[in-house]
């Protein structure tokens, strides 16, 4: 059943988590180049798996009105 309250609730929880991580666990530091070891890991990429990302973009592009946000490109099908 459609329930706007549930969806908005999930979004609020997410936003709270987002800002808690941003505000507490992740204080800003001027990281030197020789301290980039952790962020050089495969898992520490903004898009760690391009084909997984592209598949999701295609699915949600064809099922929702909103699209994009992470970069240029996308679209190119008659599914929306």
């Amino acid at each position: 059943m459609y329930d706007k309250k549930n969806i908005v609730f999930y979004l609020k929880i997410f936003l709270l988590t987002f800002f808690v991580i941003q505000g507490t666990g992740c204080a800003y530091q001027q990281v030197k180049p020789w301290h980039r070891d952790i962020l050089a890991k495969d898992s520490a990429q903004l898009i760690p798996d391009a084909l997984e990302y592209e598949a999701d973009e295609h699915i949600y592009f064809s099922k929702e009105a909103a699209k994009g946000g992470q970069g240029v490109g996308g679209g190119g099908c008659g599914c929306n």
């Binding site: 800003y28 980039r36 994009g68 970069g71 490109g73």
Partner: peptide, 15 residues
């Protein structure tokens, strides 16, 4: 589509 973005190394463990 036009796109502007900024990516920042926030600390040793955060992007």
């Amino acid at each position: 589509n036009y796109f502007l973005g900024i990516t920042q190394v926030w600390n040793r463990r955060t992007l």
